[in-house]
Nucleic acid binder design. Structure first.
Length: 363
DNA sequence: TCTAATT
């Protein structure tokens, strides 16, 4: 079922070719008259990457096409979590073209990746994503694009569909314009308006930024991440380029052995420090030397009441010694935080999170 | 009534 939904969504997803601008040259980096390198024919943006794909796997996949000048998987600054997209800049424009032709539409786990030319980075293309609700259920993605295209160039559009009836519009969607001012004009022109023949007016506003999650949403995401480890990933790798071995090795095997809440509960009776004083003390291991208290607040705060965090630092260098402690008031919230965050990847590290035991404390 | 599109 989820496969069916994925395919429907990917069918509805617009595949926009951004297309390089300017004149083509046969080979090598293109140098414009002002001396700056022109990346428009070599630099690609890759969207809809699987959440757990690493920088190394990303580079390996795109490096199979040709020599890479640089590449970057974009990650959340605080948690290090992948934001699901990245950039690849090839040395040779021909390889960029080849990557689009061969890797665009590749299915990885539950995702269908999109590979297209990156637009030149600029402030004017940011925050150009609109959230649209109240759409007639009969309105197709194409209809919606037609309605919005009078205000500017559409980069992506999507209508969300019901998960169970697979294909029935939920009446809500997204439109990303090339430029923010185009999005603003679309709000002015369409918010509160009835599309031709529609009974109700639509609402058009800027979409929430998915990387700025509420605590509840973060918890949900982490919980789902943890749950996915038990069931294992879905499997529909294509066999193209013999990358299946690489990808299966990376994705097909559980990397961590998670602990369940039940096993935590049984642990609780044995050697926990217990809720003496302020609350439940949690041991966090494998923090980076640069880790600070804010990281611990960000990680544990979504799970409930946190009364104290502490990063243990070296006395002379003031760098984190690799571990810290978090105190949480309520047992259930602490147990959920541990079950979700143990094995969690923070940047390029895998955290070990557990209740602080008396053993670790003994003199 | 909210998906991971700008380094």
């Amino acid at each position: 079922m989820s496969r069916m939904v994925t395919q429907i969504i990917s069918t509805m997803e617009t595949q926009v070719s951004n297309g390089p601008s300017g004149t083509s040259l046969p080979n090598g980096p293109v140098i414009s008259t002002n001396g700056a390198t022109d990346d428009s024919k070599t630099n690609l943006i890759v969207n809809y990457l699987p959440q757990n794909m690493t920088q190394e796997e990303f580079k390996s996949l795109f490096g199979s096409i040709g020599e890479i000048e640089s590449c970057k998987l974009v990650r959340d600054k605080i948690t290090g979590q992948s934001l699901g997209y990245g950039f690849v800049n090839y040395v040779d424009p021909n390889d960029a073209d080849k990557a689009i032709n061969t890797l665009n539409g590749l299915k990885l786990q539950t995702k269908t990746i999109k590979v297209s030319y990156a637009r030149p980075s600029s402030a004017s293309i940011r925050d150009a994503n609109l959230y649209v609700s109240g759409l007639p259920k009969t309105m197709t993605q194409k209809d919606m694009e037609q309605l919005f295209s009078q205000y500017g160039r559409i980069i992506t559009s999507r209508i969300l569909v019901d998960q169970v009836t697979a294909g029935i519009s939920r009446g809500v969607g997204f439109i990303r314009f090339d430029k923010r001012n185009e999005a603003e004009e679309a709000i002015k022109g369409l918010n509160g308006q009835k599309p031709l023949g529609a009974a109700e007016p639509i609402t058009v506003k800027f979409a929430n930024n998915p990387s700025q999650k509420t605590g509840q949403a973060l918890l949900t995401q982490l919980y789902q991440t943890a749950a996915r480890r038990y069931t294992g990933p879905l499997h529909h790798q294509t066999q193209r380029f013999r990358l299946d071995n690489l990808l299966n090795a990376s994705y097909g095997v559980k990397r961590f052995s998670p602990i369940t809440i039940d096993s935590m509960t049984s642990l609780a009776g044995v050697n926990l420090t217990g809720p003496t004083g302020a609350g439940w003390c949690i041991f966090v291991y494998n923090l980076s030397p640069e880790a600070d208290e804010s990281v611990l607040w960000q990680l544990f705060g979504p799970f409930g009441a946190v009364t104290n965090v502490k990063v243990i630092r070296d006395f002379t260098t003031n760098k984190c010694k690799g571990f810290g402690f978090v105190t949480m008031t309520n047992y259930d919230e602490a147990a959920m935080a541990i079950a979700s965050l143990n094995g969690y990847r923070l940047g390029d590290r895998v955290l070990q999170v557990s209740f602080k035991t008396s053993k670790q404390h003994k003199a």
